[in-house]
Amino acid sequence: MSRARSYLWFFAKRLGTVVFALWSLGSLVFLMIKVIPGDEAQIAAGPDASPDQVALVRQRLGLDASVIVQYFRFWGRLLHGDLGTSITTFQPVLLDLERTLPSTLELVVVAMLINLSVSIPAGLIAAARRGGRTDGLFRVLAVILGGMPAFWLALMLQYLLAARYRLLPISGQNSYGMEPPRWTGVPTLDAIAAGNMASLLDALTYIVLPAAVLAVLYSTQIFRALRTSLLGVLESDFIMAVRAKGATERRVLIGHAFPNSINPVLTLAGTQLGAMIGAAVLVETVFARRGIGTYMFNAVAQKDMYAVLGSVLFIGAIVCLINLVVDVLQIVVDPRIRAAQFGRS
């Protein structure tokens, strides 16, 4: 098989898996709607609706048809981008997600950047000084920070940095009047697109604290995974061979040990991205950010079924996408995986 064809084949296979995963997730979501206690028509019609009104809603939503028919209609609507209508915002769920998701993605991406830019250097340093004082300090810190509840940390930092010393804004996404013209819905990106430095700085001061809080737990995980992986790799024979060439410890660590230790870190970071979207709810609530976390939180509290299920489906799709990216990254890093996928390079 030619190189180009094997690449195509690879992506076709991966896309197939993604489609299968999304179909499973969608079907599961449908099943949940049917299994969760509570009459859909009753919920949609509202608590004060009369039996006649409920019957009307039931008919309008097609809930009087058989489950099989409903299942196909459900998919038909999904494929047309119709995730149903929220009973709290009275808007199509898709529209709600379009408004809330960019903010959450911004939070999660910035949190991941903070996560990696703290945990990777810390992991490298700890592994290089194995058993030393710095290593010990970092490990103790990882245990303490890893065991700290995010909402508590959020409140403490909010109190200290925002309320007491007024270094950062307490909550929200922009200062009044600093909001950039909406384009992607991500405040920092929109500010860059608008070429408005003041607006960008403003948005950054709002994002840094919530993102840091969200990053803490996950960065302790990456730190530990990287340190363990590095220590294993540093024991391997080829590291001794690199030292025998006269390499400095920096070269040994960054040029050879790190690339060989990155695989478990990539996998972990991929699963973390998905988990962070879910965990964003606490941070968004504390910092009053209009993200998908807050949206889902409200939806659950209001038993807004379509809003919850639409969010779940959307997050699922994002997780699938992240997994695809992680797979590709692993292929980029490791020539052996490349060879296994595409034959001899």
């Binding site: 391997s236 024979d237 080829f238 001794m240 061979a241 690199v242 025998a244 050879h256 690339p259 060989n260 890093v333 490791d334 020539p335 052996r336």
Partner: peptide, 13 residues
Amino acid sequence: MVFQDPMSFLDPL
């Protein structure tokens, strides 16, 4: 220095 098992003494990446 030349080592025993050449596979494990080469960086796979």
